[in-house]
Write a protein that binds this DNA or RNA. Structure first.
Lengths: 120, 120
DNA sequence: TCACGTAGTATCCTATAGGAAACTACTTCC
DNA sequence: GGAAGTAGTTTCCTATAGGATACTACGTGA
């Protein structure tokens, strides 16, 4: 039996792997999907709105993750010149392209839970 | 201006958040998507095949992640009674339900890369 | 007998992710 | 003047993810 060559270490597979790495590096961490998901369905939210809406997140993480997402053009941050200064976060058009991915992730999780606890 | 109540802290949103948490806890880590993706397109692979195919992974991580995935019924591990003992890893029917998610992730990453470096 | 291929385990180490809590700074309401 | 709401920043701490390396154990072919 001869040494089996590496099956598919070029072109398509490598591009795919790289693509998955790219996606993961941008969407990594415990909170990105939650933040994006929340902004997708409730557009225009303040920092405190997000903090209340996303169960368990703290100010440090929210702040840091929002900066990451802004840097990657997935969310907009607009400072409003209101009486007490407020900030509006919203999803960008580009961020909206993540909608199917997030839906897929959520739906898979729901199906998973059903398969574990039995559907009722 | 009255205190704004929490917008949506029940039912739908909470279920969605929980679902995303479920998915993420199962698919967490640097390598799960790569392993699953590789097994989806190249069914029946040995440990060493995977090690060679997945660029950058080491034996410890591969072993650990495969155990996780097996525990969650996403991959099958079958010990073959061949001359030198070999092991066959393959994706389960249940694991295949992740195919659209992985495709979505990969395609998004590809589009992202194009948008950053310009399409050529 | 020794190198090589199979399939992992075990050990050690480090970087970072992420939580808790306190603090800043500004404004408005009471 | 003080509480409370806005939007964060800073500091400190710890758990864990993950890499590198070495090792086990078994069988085969030269």
């Amino acid at each position: 039996m001869k040494k089996k060559a590496v099956v598919n270490n070029t072109s398509v597979c490598q591009v795919r792997m790289q693509a998955i790495n790219d996606s993961m590096s941008i969407l990594s961490g415990k909170w990105k999907f939650h933040i994006l998901g929340t902004l997708i369905e409730g557009n225009k939210m303040g920092f405190m709105d997000l903090l209340r809406e996303i169960n368990g997140i703290g100010t440090k993480m929210l702040s840091k993750e929002l900066q990451d997402l802004e840097m990657n053009q997935l969310v907009n941050r607009t400072v409003m010149n209101t009486k007490p200064i407020t900030v509006e976060y919203s999803i960008t058009k580009y961020g909206e392209t993540l909608s199917p991915l997030i839906d897929e992730l959520a739906n898979w999780g729901i199906k998973y839970r059903q398969s574990v606890y039995g559907k009722k």
